[in-house]
């Protein structure tokens, strides 16, 4: 069955507690006196009535200013944040490359962390047994793989995290601002690997501020602004729209920083 993602009318809001955790005392007092301190909570609409259909073959780039709801939408698709309204339907197995290295245990060796991290990504022991050698090979950490990762440099750390996430052949790939760290050689290798993953997976979602990367890897782009999808179309058109119309909503200086000028040949593609 082909992969598909349907987001229908999905809204999601965060509550910001002024008093970070509602204390038991206040709840009891509120219950007794019958009034609640309404001011203690500020609601923030992170996503507003999102409608989006992603079909097999889509390499969808998601662009928008900071706080536009891009990462939240990805996390909603993964299932971390259930929508308060509407529905999200996913067909196919998701491989999230979000927050790489989540769950690394610094006391454990690199090898043990491969298994631990794989398990957190929902893979079985048997699968990880098969992937272990490939991951170690890709990360080029053969010498250090049995050392506790607290002795790793941050570059080695990033290499391991990337290798674990990127070694499988995903059905649906979600990528949030992924930057492979390490030396130039590894960055090149990781970039090639990402390109391969993009081409081989059924659906790809890429959240990035790097507009070159977006126009390079995606065949469809959506522009998000303040929790809404304000644009949906081919990359060149959307990047143009984003740079000229959306980024302008910022103060001029900040806009220049967020949207670096793009070479015309990239837009022409």
């Amino acid at each position: 069955m082909t992969q598909q993602i349907q987001i229908q009318n999905a809204s999601l809001k965060f509550r910001i507690y002024r008093n970070r955790a509602p204390a038991l005392k206040e709840a009891v007092i509120g219950l007794l006196t019958g009034k609640r301190d309404k001011d203690a909570v500020t609601e923030f609409d992170a996503l507003k009535k999102i409608n989006l259909t992603i079909r097999a073959g889509d390499r969808l780039g998601v662009i928008g200013l900071n706080g536009a709801g891009k990462s939240t939408m990805l996390k909603m698709i993964v299932g971390i944040y259930p929508p308060h309204q509407g529905r999200v339907l996913v067909q196919g197995k998701i491989t999230p490359l979000i927050e790489l290295g989540t769950g690394f245990d610094f006391e454990l060796s690199g090898r043990e962390n491969i298994y631990l991290n794989g398990a957190l990504l929902g893979r079985s022991y048997q699968q990880m047994r098969q992937l272990e050698a490939k991951i170690i090979e890709f990360s080029e950490l053969e010498e250090f793989i049995d050392l506790p990762i607290k002795y790793y440099s941050s570059g080695m750390h990033g290499r391991l995290a990337f290798s674990i996430g990127a070694i499988v052949e995903p059905e649906i790939l979600l990528v949030d601002e992924i930057f492979a760290t390490g030396d130039a050689h590894f960055v090149q290798k990781a970039t090639d690997r990402m390109r391969h993953l993009f081409n081989s997976s059924g659906i790809t979602l890429l959240v990035s501020h790097n507009l070159h990367q977006i126009s390079d890897l995606c065949n469809r782009v959506i522009v998000m602004h303040k929790g809404e999808i304000v644009g949906d179309g081919p990359p060149a058109e959307m990047i143009n729209y984003y740079v000229n119309d959306v980024a302008h909503l910022l103060k001029p200086a900040a806009a220049a920083a967020v949207a670096p000028p793009i070479e015309p040949q990239l837009l022409a593609k």
Partner: peptide
């Protein structure tokens, strides 16, 4: 890629979506 998902994904990263119901 994963053989044990013949029709609909049943992995722990997959099942929740089909059952995730709207609050309203």
């Amino acid at each position: 890629m994963v053989a044990r998902h013949p029709e609909r994904s049943v992995s722990f990263l997959g099942t929740h979506q089909m059952l995730r119901e709207p609050m309203r």
